[in-house]
Nucleic acid binder design. Structure first.
Lengths: 210, 210
DNA sequence: CCTACCGATCGGTAGG
DNA sequence: CCTACCGATCGGTAGG
């Protein structure tokens, strides 16, 4: 549903635009190319979205809207207990892995329109960064979180690691590896491990394997 | 020098193209726009670089070439001793902070041409990732590095964290913060802290401040 | 390094 | 949802 196959034309345009903007960028994608894939003519597309800029906004709006949908669940997971950290990161990872286009669009927007995105980040993401940061500060006060950790910077790093990691799996995959494969999974596992190790003090010194 | 102000026209074209490709992307930058800033006409630009595609390659070639210049020093730092980890990460960070356009170009290329870049990564970056990974495996064998760390994935994560971090400082800066400022510095410090904490076992449990 | 010019494609409009 | 068409701009060439 939602970001999947849609019946109505406007929805199909939105799906195709999302995919092409993510893959080739806004400037690298023409309205004709989008219309062609949908199976209509360019003027018909412009009936549903009166300009290319409006289509861009519609695409981004849906991504942020979906983020707001899952946010309550993520925050609930966050404040449930200390051991839930993996689940929390897992939720954020799942959001982007479920549709890597979200990560690519976000990363492209960071590069193409840093100021405009910084504003939207302030609206949609900043609040939950603050909540997470406060949570980390409580952890520092009770000694479970590294004292020299920079709460806001840490949260931003983890988000960036997740977003950039998902968005660039194709380019960062080891040498001759085929696309897709299990690379993403081991990458995600290492993301969680790094975030965890950089966050909590000790956790019994050595760990898991060996 | 090199990536700074140049006397000859070809060099100035390369400088301007690097800056504009990094800021607006390849498709978002016209040859006329580049020529205008250099102070020449488009056909004159096409005398020095016979196509836009060739100009793109020249821009990327110089970034990778500079990377190869600093690589020996980085590897020397890497193999000098365990305590040199900060210096190693610092060298890589310095490479991108010295010219954030390098990070933006690389990230854009990962998004625009993942396959082409994966090839170039295999040529320029993969060798030193292997060296670093072997080094980490030795650390695991002697117990100084977390046993459950995935060596290749870890190195890729740190690189990605640095590249994405430098490339997106403008968009990721906290809400109303003015551009530039000291945000980058504290961001970089947290990058190093995270990498360090996710790498080494123990290091006396608590740490630095407080 | 220039002027002059090319066909192709861009986002968008008119009008139905 | 279409055909027909717009001016502007694209990368690139001719020819000097």
């Amino acid at each position: 549903m939602s970001e999947a196959v849609q019946e109505d034309v406007a929805g199909r345009v939105l799906d195709v635009a999302t995919r092409l903007f993510a893959a080739q960028g806004y400037d690298g994608t023409s309205l004709s190319a989008i219309a062609d894939e949908v199976g209509i003519r360019k003027p018909s597309l412009l009936y549903h979205y009166s300009s290319k800029e409006e289509l861009r906004h519609a695409v981004l709006r849906r991504v942020f809207s979906h983020w707001n949908d899952v946010l309550p669940r993520i925050l609930q997971v966050a404040t449930t207990g200390t051991g839930r950290f993996d689940a929390l990161v897992g939720e954020v990872v799942a959001f982007f892995v479920a549709s890597p286009d979200r990560a690519r669009l976000l990363l492209r927007e960071m590069l193409d329109r840093p100021d405009a995105l910084a504003e939207q980040m302030g609206e949609y993401v900043a609040p939950w960064i603050s909540i997470m940061a406060d949570y980390l500060r409580r952890g520092q006060a009770e000694g479970s979180v590294h004292a020299d950790l920079n709460p806001e910077a840490f949260v931003r790093h983890v988000i960036l690691m997740i977003v950039a990691g998902v968005a660039t799996t194709d380019a960062m995959r080891p040498a001759g590896t085929p696309p897709d494969s299990a690379v993403l999974e081991s990458h995600v596992r290492e993301t969680i491990r790094i975030a965890r190790a950089a966050l909590f003090i000790d956790r019994s010194s050595s760990s898991g394997a060996q």
